[in-house]
C-alpha cells in the first residue's frame, strides 16, 4: 500500500515536471537573459548591503566596548556591597534552569515504546529488551535447576529414613503405630517431592517456550 502511494506521487511529480519543462522551454532563453541581468543587479546591491552592515557592526562593537568599560567602572563600586546576594540569586536561577532542563530531557526518554531511547530506535530498543528478558529467563532456569538438586537430596533422604525406620521397627525400638505415623510423614514428603519435580519439569518447559517466543518476536 505504502509503495503504491509513493509510486503514485512519484508519477504525479514526474508528469508535473515534464509538462512544466515543455511549457518552459520556449520562454527559457528570454528569461535567461533577464535573470542574468537581474542577478548582476542583486549581487551589486547585496555587496553594498553587506559592506554597510559590516561597518555598522564594527561601530556598534566599539560603542559596546566603551559602554561596558563605563559600566564596569560604575559597577565595581556597587558590586563590592551587593555582590554576594546577586551571585547567590544567579546561582540559584542557573541551578533551577539546569534541573528543569535535565527533567525535561528525562521526560522525553520516558516509557514511550519505540521512540528513540538514547541512540536506540524502536526496533533496537525492543531487541535489547528481548535480550535482557532472555537473560533473565536463563537466570530463572539456573535457579530452577538448583531445585532439582533439592529433589535429588530429598529422594536420597526419604530412602535412608525409610530404611532406618524399618530397622527401628525390626529392632522393636518403635511399635506398629509409630511406624505408621512415620510412614505417613515420609509419604507426605515423597508426595511433595513429586509435586516439586513436576513443577520443575513444567518450569523448564515454560522457560524454553518463552525463550523461543522472545526469539521469534524479532526474527
Amino acid at each position: 500500500m505504502k509503495k503504491l502511494i509513493i509510486l503514485f506521487f512519484a508519477i504525479l511529480l514526474i508528469a508535473g515536471t515534464q509538462t512544466a519543462i515543455a511549457q518552459g522551454n520556449s520562454q527559457k532563453e528570454k528569461s535567461k537573459k533577464e535573470l542574468k541581468e537581474k542577478g548582476k543587479d542583486l549581487k551589486e546591491k547585496g555587496e553594498k548591503k553587506v559592506r554597510e552592515v559590516k561597518e555598522k557592526h564594527e561601530k556598534g562593537k566599539e560603542k559596546e566596548h566603551k559602554d561596558k568599560d563605563k559600566e564596569r567602572e560604575h559597577d565595581e563600586d556597587d558590586d563590592s556591597r551587593d555582590n554576594g546576594k546577586i551571585k547567590d540569586k544567579d546561582n540559584k536561577k542557573e541551578k533551577k534552569e539546569k534541573k528543569e532542563k535535565v527533567e525535561k530531557e528525562n521526560n522525553g526518554k520516558g516509557n514511550a515504546y519505540g521512540k528513540n531511547k538514547g541512540d536506540l530506535t524502536g526496533r533496537e530498543f525492543g531487541q535489547a529488551r528481548a535480550n535482557e528478558a532472555k537473560n533473565k529467563i536463563e537466570e530463572r532456569e539456573v535457579r530452577i535447576k538448583r531445585s532439582e538438586d533439592t529433589v535429588e537430596k530429598g529422594r536420597r533422604k526419604v530412602k535412608e529414613t525409610r530404611e532406618r525406620v524399618k530397622k527401628q521397627h525390626e529392632n522393636k525400638e518403635i511399635n506398629d503405630k509409630e511406624l505408621e505415623e512415620k510412614e505417613v510423614k515420609i509419604k507426605s514428603v515423597e508426595e511433595d517431592l513429586n509435586d516439586l519435580e513436576e513443577k520443575i519439569k513444567k518450569g523448564k518447559e515454560k522457560a524454553l517456550q518463552k525463550k523461543k517466543e522472545i526469539e521469534t518476536i524479532y526474527e
Binding site: 515504546y113 519505540g114 526496533r123 525492543g126 530463572r140 535457579r143 520443575i200
Partner: peptide, 29 residues
C-alpha cells in the same frame, strides 16, 4: 513501529513475569 515495539515489549514483559512467578513458586516449594 512504535505500536509494534509496544506490543513486542508487552509480550516480552508478560513472558518475563510468567517465568518469574513460576520460578518463585518453585523456590517457595
Amino acid at each position: 513501529e512504535e505500536e509494534k515495539t509496544k506490543a513486542a515489549v508487552e509480550k516480552i514483559e508478560a513472558a518475563e513475569k510468567e517465568m518469574e512467578t513460576i520460578s518463585n513458586e518453585i523456590e517457595e516449594k
